[in-house]
Design a protein around this nucleic acid. Sequence first.
DNA 1: GTGGTCTAGACCACC
DNA 2: GTGGTCTAGACCACG
Lengths: 129, 129, 129, 129
Amino acid sequence: MKILISNNSDVPLYQQIKDQLKDAILRQELKQGDMLPSIRTFANELRVSVLTVRRVYDDLEQEGFVVSQVGIGTFVNVGNVELLRDSRRREVEEKMADMIATAKSLDISKEELWQMLEILFEEGASREA
Amino acid sequence: MKILISNNSDVPLYQQIKDQLKDAILRQELKQGDMLPSIRTFANELRVSVLTVRRVYDDLEQEGFVVSQVGIGTFVNVGNVELLRDSRRREVEEKMADMIATAKSLDISKEELWQMLEILFEEGASREA
Amino acid sequence: MKILISNNSDVPLYQQIKDQLKDAILRQELKQGDMLPSIRTFANELRVSVLTVRRVYDDLEQEGFVVSQVGIGTFVNVGNVELLRDSRRREVEEKMADMIATAKSLDISKEELWQMLEILFEEGASREA
Amino acid sequence: MKILISNNSDVPLYQQIKDQLKDAILRQELKQGDMLPSIRTFANELRVSVLTVRRVYDDLEQEGFVVSQVGIGTFVNVGNVELLRDSRRREVEEKMADMIATAKSLDISKEELWQMLEILFEEGASREA
DNA sequence: GTGGTCTAGACCACC
DNA sequence: GTGGTCTAGACCACG
């Protein structure tokens, strides 16, 4: 489980961590019952305040992806992973719509967007490979 | 020149105004030498603090899209409109890449994205019509 | 008598005009008793508001370089031209001191300044020639 | 880090502060990664509005000499210190040229300027000592 | 009338 | 604690 965070990003630290943990659950990299690192351990690894990690765990618990047991640890709970999948899909649609709006204000045609999509999709694939 | 702003948005007021003014310049709705409303007038129209409008004008001047002259007014300067166009194009590419990254983590195929692009592009078109 | 003004300068219009008139008096281009253009004529020539020219004439009269006679015109009065010469000399000294302060914060040596002075002095000479 | 400001100067407070911070960076008095005082602390020290300090930090960030991180602080970033050095050198040249222009209109000779330079340079030195 | 600077408060999200 | 945004006033120099 690798988490990459950036202090220079405009997205909050806790948000970056949350997103990557959710992704890991979606990708089945974290499975039902897996134990997450302790707050202090995780904070040390990520070079981040314990308050930040606590907030991540609290949020994830409140959203139902994790269960904390005092004195024992924090465990993955894939209960409503389908809800997550849906919400992430809506997220993609929103980003697409936002991008299209910006593109239209520049008179970029649908065809140009197709090309761009083609190129960037393959690029990402090779970069990940 | 219509500016629409929302107090409930998470994007700052001054940012909303700035973006719409830049768009207007890009769309040639505002042309070289056009005078913008005075700070006070604009603040009144938008129901916003003068300081917020001032910040918009300061930023735009700093970015070179506007020239302010004390005692006279603030005027459009289309000097580096090409730079703006380029930066906005890069913005579209970034949004596209970001969306693709999210899509991939959900195993959404390129074909699905094509469909989504098709639908959302036309939807936006009819909404604007 | 040529007056050159720039709207983009950060020095006020009325100041630019005043300075150039004072220079003309110092250089004897304007002599005792010479009549200045009427406010309206001058404002037209310079493409400037009559208020701006009025302010220039008022200031110059208050400083004693000019005498206005209602209904007749405004006339040069070289009375205290020596005072002017002194004040301008002090101005040179202030500019020199200011420049030296900036230079020192950059560790520019006296020798470098000598060279710079040499070059810029001759440059200006040839440009004027 | 001592900052001296004057309310009676015709140069804006925020400009005075900005200039002195830039100088401190140039002189290596402020080094890469150093944390600047928090906005509120600094405003208190200087007996100035928080908005004035904020403007200073905003400008410096925009010019690349500083990086602000919400919830953490504002840090020195010596990235383009060379650009700064160059721009300051050009500033010296401009001041020198401006001074020479004024001097010439008074028929002050190059030799006189040499003398003046000599005197004022040493004067400043002893004043600083 | 215009823009430029400044003050003294406030609320928010983040760490 | 930090910086980011915003308000509702004010005074000034310039045209």
